[in-house]
């Protein structure tokens, strides 16, 4: 089964500037893709994403990737992904973010979602970035038998 929790922090606020840094960026015009590689970090307001590589896929609608006039279709991130918002941190092996549906999916052998001392471990975290609604699915094929492991630290709610 899976657990629902509100991940209010993990929201992409519409018009705050986004700052991306990496060691290298290759923009391939014909494949409509821009590849950031080498400790990539993406910051927008309080939300931070870190990863080894991030591919930005542009829509095929004619705008050019190099000139940035094309709008972004989706992001694919891999190389141990770390996502942090005001009070939550999520880590996993890879992540995809679909710009239209604004859904972030973080997956991997062990996806860890923590808020303060509360830690939830599963294999697939799906976050609706529009409202921060997050859903963590267990790992089907591990000995945990597909169950989500949740560690709740008593009294951590009021200490926040």
């Amino acid at each position: 089964q899976d657990s629902q929790s509100r991940l209010t922090g993990l929201q992409l606020s519409g018009d705050k500037p986004i700052q991306i840094e990496s060691e290298r960026l290759e923009v391939r015009e014909e494949d409509n893709v821009a590849v950031f590689s080498g400790n990539v970090s993406v910051v927008q307001g309080p939300t931070l994403l870190k990863a080894g590589r991030m591919k930005v896929y542009y829509l095929q609608d004619g705008g050019s990737a190099a000139t940035g006039s094309a709008n972004i279709d989706r992001l694919e991130v891999d190389g141990n992904v770390y996502v942090k918002s005001e009070n939550q941190v999520a880590t996993g092996d890879s992540a995809t973010f679909d710009m239209k549906t604004e859904v972030l999916v973080l997956s991997g052998k062990e996806v860890v979602l923590s808020e303060g001392e509360n830690v939830i471990v599963g294999c697939r975290l799906t976050v609706q970035m529009k409202n921060g609604q997050a859903e963590l699915d267990g790992c089907k094929d591990t000995k945990a038998g597909g169950r989500v492991k949740m560690l709740l630290t008593p009294g951590s709610q009021n200490r926040q």
Partner: peptide, 26 residues
Amino acid sequence: GKVFVFDKRVRVTIDPSRIRETADAR
């Protein structure tokens, strides 16, 4: 110009509001 390669300390700043402005204008 089909392939652009930026190397060493790449810093990209995207200002969504300005992109939307120019996109609407376009």
